[in-house]
Design a protein around this nucleic acid. Structure first.
Lengths: 148, 148
DNA sequence: CGACGATAGTTGTAGATACAAATAAAGCAG
DNA sequence: CTGCTTTATTTGTATCTACAACTATCGTCG
């Protein structure tokens, strides 16, 4: 009710961003470790997955879904294209550079699924059911937020 | 009960790491925007906060609390030292390089608190109470996990 | 059709992040 | 005291990330 003076200890104990970033580091490392044998990191893995879901994906679509900066996606796509996992698809609008999974990209995903399942189980175990169940709703909200 | 074949759609809909990374991007940008007038980002802010909490902090302590790689911290500390927010403190063990907040660093934190409060409120509003309440427990677990 | 604003991507720059390898000092076994 | 192991940190390298600025194309209004 009252508004106590915020101090360093309060921030250390309650900062949402700090906690999220910490959890993010730990969880990403779980998935990165599991996917390392495939030369894949979860950052790129999620882009591949959404590309596969869309069939033909435009950068702007992926950026909107994942709330990624366009320049970040651009560089990630370039790397995955070099790896042979994605290929460009010519489209009508010359401004856009849509892309899709290559056959090799599809095979990569298929082969990495057991590793993903293992990481997913480990993350669930670590974070607890409460947190994981509330994650969906929060992610939906965040994905739909239009911060710039 | 049964174990259905995991497919791309399942992963897209359920991947914990993907959701966390998405939320992390959105939430970090809320705090970064709020802190930008101070030349501070939330990544460095959290290190400053924990340093302040400890008084004199060693890299290894901060890394353990925040589950940060030592090399990451090393570079972040170097930047903040150049900014005049942190200073080294000589210690007994010549292997360690403990540091603490400078007066300027303390003033920076004090002045940025209202901006932090604003970002914190915005993040809470965006993510919802369920998620935020489950965050503490999850972060504690993640912080104590000894991956690595 | 021509100018102009909106949309889509890329490039320059910089910080955040981690892994592997290198460096340096402490501790310990003998 | 000497050599080996452990601990603490830094450096090399690469990816992830975003902001600002730039380029190219599209749409539209006249």
């Amino acid at each position: 009710m009252d508004k106590p003076a915020t101090n360093i200890d309060t921030i250390a104990k309650t900062c949402i961003a700090g906690r999220l970033r910490l959890i993010n580091r730990v969880v990403s490392s779980i998935y990165d470790d599991a996917l390392r044998p495939f030369g894949l990191k979860i950052s790129q893995g999620n882009i591949l997955i959404f590309t596969g879901k869309l069939g033909i994906a435009s950068p702007v679509q992926i950026c909107e879904y994942l709330q990624l900066d366009a320049s970040t996606l651009s560089r990630n796509v370039e790397l995955m294209r070099k790896n042979g996992w994605l290929e460009e698809v010519p489209g009508e609008d010359a401004r856009s550079r849509p892309f899709r999974l290559t056959e090799e990209g599809k095979r990569l995903i298929e082969s990495a699924i057991p590793a993903w399942e293992k990481a997913q189980a480990e993350a669930k175990e670590l974070l607890g059911d409460d947190f994981v169940s509330s994650l969906n709703k929060a992610a939906k909200r965040a994905s739909e937020s239009n911060r710039a």
